[in-house]
Design a protein around this nucleic acid. Structure first.
Lengths: 222, 222
DNA sequence: AAGTATTTTTAGATTAGTCTAAAAATGAAT
DNA sequence: ATTCATTTTTAGACTAATCTAAAAATACTT
């Protein structure tokens, strides 16, 4: 088995992402949406990937990754997230600039390169967005994190991740001092629209929309 | 003009390399040899590249890079060589291991990434094989270097580059203490086969074949 | 200058990946 | 269970890049 094309790799990543979020088989439509292509193209590709035993595929039933496919997808995520750490920590990019570059770097084929990079970076366990970096064996670190929106009044927590990765959202968080590591407390919840008034350690209190609080992942403190 | 495919980029690099070596237009055959494809495929591609004004092409006449094509090829070389420095200096690979990886990394599209990498590395002017790294404007540093084989008996010099980049050659040089920076002196020249007896500062004297001395670039000292 | 050898180009096919439009399968709703 | 809407698959066509084999152009040799 020689190595996959970038296109094939992107399909595996998309399938991984969908299965992870939805906790079930990925539909043709969902994959098309994720990859920005047509369902017809996806159907075609699914046949090819099934032919290489990278996915489990029965017509009209959606697909899941095979053990092999899962392994490859996991390594792509490992590479992507390690490169993101490199770009932010070593080259001083900000967290909202690195996605596109990592998207390309993740396709560089060299297992040795990944391991050297990992060790140069000090074996980081989370990327600049707080997403866990699978280790060389493919294991993801896990954390007891929840959406900020699930906290009750008076609870305190530390921002450890985001669910939405768009540059605009990340820039908004920077501006509001809500980046990774920010210590926040819920002061008030407005029933009307689900917005929250939060305290931010070292900064001014702030009202954030439910859309923001649902996309912020935190770890409760105390 | 959106950006080029990796294939197109590889053709531009090949044409650059041939024109540089031969000092004239690159022939279809030479390009096919460099890229490991058939002359027919090259002919096809030349039409496409000419269509994008990346090369000057008249049938049966060979090709040269247009200003545009030259700019792109130069930036590819810049990226390739910077990544090689990164791999050797930062990730501690040896000079015979980095070519393949750099070959992939050079296709990552992000001008900002190149500049950040360059500055992280301290604006190196030569790569791990002694090849000059073009600056952001595309200018190559130049040096008065000659093949070791051109020295007369008694002359001394420092190894600054190689003309052959194969892993076996580079490993041979490592083993013989003839890596970049080695101080050598020509002690004896054997007419019979053109081999040389050289002194190497800090190491034992050594006889090297003409093939080796022709592929070693040195800068005369004193 | 003619004829042979070499190089280059064309012609025609192939593969990966994509698309649109149409057909088939599935799911939902009465 | 039949209809309607949605999802998925097929059919057929297109582009980029490649190949082999044949044709055309150039270069070499005497």
């Amino acid at each position: 088995m020689d190595h996959l094309s970038q296109t094939e790799e992107n399909y595996l990543k998309a399938i991984f992402k969908i299965c992870e979020q939805e906790e079930k088989a990925a539909s043709t439509n969902a994959i098309a949406g994720e990859i920005n292509t047509t369902p017809a193209s996806v159907s075609d590709m699914l046949k090819r990937l099934a032919g290489k035993s990278l996915i489990h595929y029965e017509k009209h039933r959606g697909v899941t990754l095979s053990e092999n496919g899962l392994q490859i997808a996991t390594m792509l995520i490992r590479k992507h997230r390690l490169w993101e750490v490199f770009l932010v920590k070593t080259l001083n990019f900000s967290w909202d600039e690195v996605h596109e570059m990592a998207e390309q770097l993740e396709h560089v084929q060299s297992p040795e390169l990944v391991e050297r990079l990992d060790s140069f970076l000090g074996h980081p366990r989370f990327d600049p967005h707080g997403d866990p970096i699978p280790d060389a064996a493919g294991n993801f670190a896990s954390r007891k994190q929840v959406q900020l929106s699930t906290l009750a009044i008076g609870e305190k927590a530390v921002v450890v991740g985001v669910q939405e990765h768009s540059a605009v959202f990340l820039q908004y968080l920077d501006k509001m001092n809500l980046g990774l590591g920010a210590s926040v407390g819920v002061q008030e919840i407005f029933e009307f629209d689900g917005s929250l008034k939060v305290t931010i350690e070292g900064h001014q209190d702030l009202v954030i929309s439910s859309k923001v609080s649902e996309n912020l992942l935190v770890q409760k403190t105390k």
